[in-house]
Design a protein around this nucleic acid. Structure first.
Lengths: 358, 358
DNA sequence: GGGATGATTGTAAACGTTTACAACGAGAAC
DNA sequence: GTTCTCGTTGTAAACGTTTACAATCATCCC
């Protein structure tokens, strides 16, 4: 059974398609009796306006494209839920794409979203400061809002927390607790500008407190092989007493591996995560983490984008508040004198471990 | 700057739009030289085919609609990630909608997805056996695959685990561990056919083992107020020694509340969840749960739908394997004689607590 | 040389809407 | 009675594609 069109409705109601369209869209200036006839025909035929035809004519799809790394990380899932909630109010729908942290998939995804002529985009890209995608969107003048990505120097519309300040906050807190040798486990910094910002703040605060440059281990975002990395780090005599992980998933995996290696958390090593995923408070040990309001972040990104679509020329970047949530994974530094100078260790296993001696 | 169209490309390349279309779609029988000219023009103009125009003409949007309750529950987020992966292979994109467990939002969501003329749908509805939505899709002959929903007697295309068997499995395991008084905490059974199936299996197996009908507490899916419910249950002298929760999120919340009430898990009460969300193994105590392969479930649903879209008339329901994952939240029944007969307790607080004496 | 053949390309209609413009009719104003 | 106005409706073009069909042209065969 062919789907009913406005034409069918018009014939059934004995009017023209123009009138049908007017009634459907609630345009003013149509006789109530006529409208009633049309509505009756709509109900009788089970007519549902074809959004494709409408989009083509109006050059507006009422579609928002969403591109994020993965839904497997609750931080993004929550944000998307928030976005969905936010755009629904404006009568928009969500066209979804996941990049799985791969730049190529990022481009492909955007390409697809643009084909569908989305009215705007909300995205989390690997690196907002070096993104062909964003340049593309800028030149094509397609409205977008970045979620999670720091705006950098480009003044791009962004909704995020102050990642650098948050990273610094973690270091400061660790120092307060007596930690003198710090480390960071991060997804590849080249693939995550936010991890980079967090690292920068962390590193700067460490330096400000007179500490050696923190250890840094970069791992792939997908299926990170933490065991050899951590084993190597904690084989060193100047191993860190506290680890800052660039996200909660990584922190959880790290705690698991440490425990497996017989290293107690927080007895021997404290671990702090980032994101504040809901489940963190139920973990063992409960996860200390920097909480960012993910759902709210999604909602805000949606709101900002709708504003832009509503005509406002440029929307300002939004910085949402973060807060360091304490948890049992974070404790005081174990008793043992600080090491004088930090040595660099050989990375014979080819692992991405860098350690800088200032 | 107006977006380039096939017409612009045609003019630049000095050919007709028909030829441009042929080149874009890789149709046979076009002179390589001509193709080269077109490709050059495409590159020069940054032309990107308008999917809306294409959809209108071809009557195929290459869009798959997805409707699930919420992304805040990792079980759905993972499935959607799997779906995205699955449909991408077939060149489809995902139009997303969340119902937040509300039937009205379900209808609204579907309505929207259909407006965009999605080629097919993957959905998790409240109740597949009583869904106006599904009837609608059936009469409109729109291909769809249900995810998580049991197919019931309707023979609808479904990808799920055997919820009833899984529920029975949990009860049997609890009996093996010496539990004689069972209980179930579930989202409203009327809002979740899968919770209902799990309850049925659980209840049947309990009966088969000669136990009294398990306690049953139904709570709203969103922001369940567990504290009063659990307080009331465990004030009774014949309180259960084991609780089966209809999903992991509920199980986690339950454990939290029990602990807050000073009831030890699993010392006094064992808790078993359902879904097998990844984080469960990191909880404290680690969560015993029925694992269903969510990502795989999403992928499979996508595959089934693509098959259907590829021409296969009816696709068979798929039952994926489940497995009971042990965890520290599940232990042997505490030492204390079983109660003779189970009394019904007053639900003076208006809470939805039912208890049936056979 | 003339017609047939086949490769390549163009023409134009169609998909389902929206909307500028025209048209129509009924009353109002004169 | 004529003209104007206003409310209501219809006509037709346009949005950007795809595709059936026609057209063109070179080549080949007799």
């Amino acid at each position: 059974m062919r789907r009913a069109t406005a034409r069918d409705v018009a014939e059934t109601a004995g009017v023209s398609v123009a009138t049908v369209s007017r009634v459907i869209n609630g345009a003013a200036g149509v006789n109530p009796e006529t409208a009633a006839k049309v509505h009756a025909a709509v109900a009788e035929l089970g007519y549902r306006p074809n959004g494709v035809g409408r989009s083509l004519k109006t050059a507006s799809s009422r579609l928002i494209g969403v591109l994020i790394p993965t839904l497997s990380n609750p931080v993004f899932a929550e944000a998307v839920d928030g976005i969905a909630e936010g755009v629904a109010n404006g009568g928009y729908s969500l066209l979804f794409s996941a990049s799985d942290y791969r730049r190529q998939a990022e481009s492909l995804g955007i390409e697809t979203l643009l084909r569908y002529r989305v009215d705007g985009l909300i995205l989390t890209v690997a690196d907002a400061a070096d993104s062909r995608i964003l340049d593309l969107l800028d030149t094509a003048e397609i409205p977008y809002v970045l979620a999670y990505n720091p705006d950098g120097a480009h003044g791009r519309p962004t909704v995020t927390v102050d990642n650098r300040a948050a990273g610094a906050l973690v270091a400061e807190r660790l120092v307060e607790l007596g930690h003198r040798r710090l480390g960071m486990i991060a997804g590849r910094l080249s693939d995550s500008d936010r991890a980079r910002a967090r690292h920068q703040g962390f590193s700067e605060a460490a330096a400000a407190a007179g500490l050696a440059e923190p250890w840094l281990a970069e791992v792939p975002f997908t299926r990170p092989e933490l065991e050899p990395v951590l084993a190597e780090i904690f084989a060193a005599k100047d191993a860190p007493t506290a680890l800052f992980c660039s996200n909660d998933m990584l922190a959880i995996a790290t705690i698991g591996v440490l425990t497996g290696l017989g290293i107690s958390v927080p007895g021997e090593v404290s671990v702090v995560g980032f994101d504040g995923i809901a489940i963190g408070t139920h973990l063992h040990p409960t996860l200390a983490t920097v909480v960012q309001p993910s759902r709210e972040l999604g909602r805000t990104a949606a709101r900002q984008l709708l504003r832009r679509l509503g005509g406002e020329s440029a929307v300002a970047p939004v910085i949402l508040p973060h807060v360091l949530r304490h948890g049992a994974s974070l404790g005081a530094a174990p008793k043992s004198g600080p090491v004088e100078a930090q040595a660099s260790i050989p990375t014979d296993s080819g692992l991405e471990i860098r350690t800088t001696t200032p």
